[in-house]
Design a protein around this nucleic acid. Structure first.
Lengths: 349, 349
DNA sequence: TTGTAAGCGTTATCAT
DNA sequence: ATGATAACGCTTACAA
């Protein structure tokens, strides 16, 4: 026997399909005896409602989509956790897709989620901020709005005041400012910034901006030699640091653009026989769980990961209530652990 | 204007809805000029098809569900990555839910996925193996089969020969045997096993069985004092190790039931002033990326995480082709790193 | 090559 | 309190 339908249940209970629907929805008075007969039939037939058919007539799929670079990065995973939890709490199911850093693929996925009639489409993590990509994203926001859905940018800056998108950011630039400022306050004057390639990437540019602003605030300028490229992973931190050391660039501290990068930085320094923090201070960004387990435990910038994900879903699903507040900026703060200390006397600025 | 439908497109292109459907599906001859008019109308109206409506008539939702304890554990994340990638590769979208270790909730979620008409429901990670839970899982497998869906157990043993479920396991017991055997071969005789609470949990019991079998294979018996409880996280490893040391239990090696547990073990040993591997050898299980970054880098058991996820989806979606092979057992192997060495002379067995 | 009509499983509307 | 009927947006016979 194929999947039973409301009709089958209705027949088994000796009632109409309408009554079955009412019992299941519980939004309409039904006599106790009828209800019981229906429920018994549901049990016997092992009936479950067809969510697609319900969505077709009812309007909403009660589905939230969640588009992310990878499932495996701890940062994304925690944001995803927040998205999934809030979605569940709001009685929604959660679709998940990964784009592996391919901006083109990201746009395709949004289209796919539009087919799926997701009530909200959450884009997690930074993205490109080229004019072209911003314009396309804005178009997508409008497309989604047209069909009653909502684009949510989570951990990415707004794409313009006219684009109908919910934005839940964290203070990326402020965190970079704070951690840089902390190192400068400790006495560091030659601080390297590892991972600065791709200035079009919103995360990269915001963090680098904070780094620069902190220097300016202290009347310092950033030596271009101390700013090196790479991406967001451990291997990049390792390679870039080796290169820095090989060049003999003078420095007393290194900021990795992410904790993963910083973990590679630590490895390269250890390999070079340099002690952290005695010889070189190291800081990261993201405060992923790993950072507390590194040796030495990593000074880093905390991001309210899970709250980002939760807020993204909450705002998008209640945009009637939060109509004026569809842009949220959550705070970041420096977490001081064991990888940072004042520079050695002979290096102090 | 609300979401445009095939009818709107048909009207705009001056054709029938059927023709629009045919153009979109591309499974039926349509004249080039008509096709172009339709495609232009699709563009102009910014039309996307309604996946629910299509599923309602077409039969399949092209959706795979993925039920996991948490999104954040690296082990689950990698398996999830495999599931998502294979699902995408097969043109499916991926639903994800978390149960946070609540077996009851897990069953509810399966029910929810049945409503969603998921083509396959992948259960990731170990579960309880109480007769009651097994029977309920078997019932669920049958329920899913009845509606054309499929239960997939990924990283969990079969629930009985009669239950219609796809099983993709890794050799949990074999890996535990191998790593224990390795430590014994190094000369260790007093090896602690941290994380053995919950013997009803399939993962716990399989790993503990392997541990025991390795001892037996060498004519050794396991001292009950060396087997301590706890769960699968870092904190547990830390606390249990502290307790072991406080009791003064004599030991030369410790196996953590997971890498996270082992990372807690390392922290507790470091705190106690014991060197790894000089004073105590430590091994983990799972080979999560973190394990290579610990100091010392952790000897552990490798699980083909991603392949587990991929195989789960592949087998379930092609069960006509793989009809005879709906039970896959993937191999595990020991990865030897720096946390294990022969015991010190004065301790050697 | 194209169109008409029926139907997928559910709910909302209007009767009774 | 319950039921008949239409409608949701799409595809798939069957016709033309």
């Amino acid at each position: 026997m194929p999947r039973p339908t409301v009709k089958d249940v209705a027949a088994a209970a000796g009632v109409s399909a309408t009554t079955v629907s009412r019992v299941l929805a519980g939004n309409y008075p039904v006599s106790a005896s009828t209800r019981n007969r229906v429920l018994r039939a549901v049990q016997e037939l092992d009936f479950v409602i067809n969510a697609q058919a319900r969505a077709l007539v009812g309007g909403s799929t009660r589905t939230v989509a969640f588009i992310v670079r990878d499932l495996v990065g701890p940062l994304f995973a925690y944001i995803g956790q927040g998205v999934e939890q809030q979605a569940t709490a709001e009685g929604r199911v959660c679709l998940v897709c990964t784009h592996h850093g391919d901006a083109e693929r990201e746009l395709e996925l949004i289209e796919l989620m539009r087919e799926q009639q997701a009530e909200a489409v959450v884009l997690v993590g930074g993205g490109l901020r080229t004019p072209e990509h911003i314009e396309r994203t804005a178009q997508i926001a409008r497309s989604l709005e047209r069909v009653g859905s909502r684009l949510v940018l989570c951990g990415r800056p707004p794409i313009g005041p006219d684009a109908p998108a919910t934005v839940v950011e964290y203070d990326n630039e402020g965190g970079a400012f704070a951690v840089t400022n902390y190192l400068i306050s400790l006495g560091h004057r030659r601080i390297a910034f590892v991972g600065a390639a791709e200035p079009e990437h919103t995360t990269t540019s915001a963090r680098f901006d904070g780094f620069t602003r902190a220097h300016r605030a202290h009347g310092l300028t950033v030596d271009a030699e101390l700013v090196v490229g790479g991406n967001f992973d451990r291997e990049s931190g390792y390679q870039q640091t080796k290169a820095l050391l090989a060049r003999g660039t003078e420095l007393t501290a290194i900021i990795g653009i992410t904790d993963m990068v910083a973990s590679g930085v630590l490895a390269a320094l250890r390999e070079a026989g340099l002690r952290v923090p005695e010889d070189v201070s190291v800081a990261g960004y993201d405060d992923i769980p790993l950072s507390a387990d590194l040796s030495p435990a990593l000074t880093t910038v905390h991001i309210p990961h899970e709250e980002l994900g939760r807020a993204a879903v909450r705002l998008a699903l209640h945009r009637d209530e939060y109509a004026l507040d569809q842009h949220l900026l959550l705070g970041t703060h420096v977490v001081i652990r064991d990888s940072t200390a004042p520079p050695r006397e002979d290096h102090a600025g």
